[in-house]
């Protein structure tokens, strides 16, 4: 039975020290879609992915993943759920002491009992899907940023997950790598019947492939809608973020006294 919402975040609050990163966060992510979660740097996007992956627990509220409360699971159940999801970390997170091939083989070796030939073929197919079959013997340190991201992508989908989480997949990529990644994310989503969640602050790139956009701000969801609807929105905060205006509801200046008062040597 397929559930409509693969992830359901209900009244979640999360604090770092005494600072609320999320306060009563509510949102749902529909199965089979590409959902982009957007917000400025430091708004808690990575934290949200950690919460979804069960690596952090919310202080209040509940996160339901595949219709189960992840905070209530024991270690074994949590690992079973994690085997159904892939994560592409912000930094790629390739294991630096393993080759490209071994990185992609890692989850397969851990979870499946495959023959050497089956394993080899599976890894090669995944690498082929991201166009890096020829790079299988390289070490992570020999890859460009875009290539590393693609290897990490191959590794994230190696277990054929139902859900994949992307943390800033476009950050720091050149335009060509960016386009390649966009196409891969979109193609993989339809080819493998995936649900994709990508957190990003690259508005144009994320909007171009997303079915749904969730805009985070001030620890909660500002708005959730389709990219087209957001482009047309009149909400000042949405407009500021979508159109990349430097100043607006979300201020460019950190709180400070007026400039005139702070400059030295002027006439009184």
């Amino acid at each position: 039975m397929a559930i409509d919402d693969i992830i359901n975040i209900q009244n979640v609050s999360f604090y770092r020290d005494d600072r609320a990163i999320f306060k009563n966060l509510n949102c749902a992510i529909s199965t089979g879609k590409i959902t982009a979660i957007m917000g400025p740097s430091g708004s808690g996007k990575t934290t949200l992915l950690r919460l979804i992956g069960g690596q952090l627990n919310p202080h209040e509220g509940q996160i339901r993943l595949f219709d189960q409360d992840i905070a209530a699971l024991n270690r074994k159940q949590l690992n079973q759920i994690r085997a159904r999801m892939g994560v592409l970390f912000q930094s790629g997170a390739l294991f630096t002491d393993l080759s490209v091939f071994e990185n992609v083989a890692f989850p397969l070796r851990e979870h499946m009992h495959l023959s050497a030939d089956e394993l080899y073929n599976k890894v090669l197919l995944k690498l082929e899907a991201v166009g890096l079959r020829g790079a299988r013997d390289l070490m992570p340190s020999q890859l460009s940023g875009g290539m590393a991201r693609r290897v990490a992508l191959a590794r994230a989908v190696a277990m054929e997950p139902e859900l994949i989480l992307y943390d800033e997949p476009f950050a720091g990529q050149d335009p060509i790598a960016m386009a390649v990644l966009q196409r891969l994310i979109k193609d993989l989503n339809s080819a493998m019947n995936l649900t994709s969640v990508l957190v990003s602050h690259d508005i144009a790139e994320a909007c171009a492939i997303a079915d749904q956009v969730i805009l985070l701000g001030e620890g909660r969801v500002l708005v959730q809608d389709t990219p087209a609807a957001l482009q047309a929105s009149n909400d000042p905060a949405v407009k500021q973020f979508i159109h990349g205006e430097a100043d607006g509801v979300i201020p460019f200046h950190f709180a400070a006294p007026a400039l005139q008062q702070e400059l030295r040597g002027g006439s009184e």
Partner: peptide
């Protein structure tokens, strides 16, 4: 460094 480059987090997500 493994922690900063999310290698530890990534091991955890692979159930290791």
């Amino acid at each position: 460094l493994m922690k900063a480059t999310e290698q530890l987090a990534s091991l955890e997500m692979f159930g290791v």
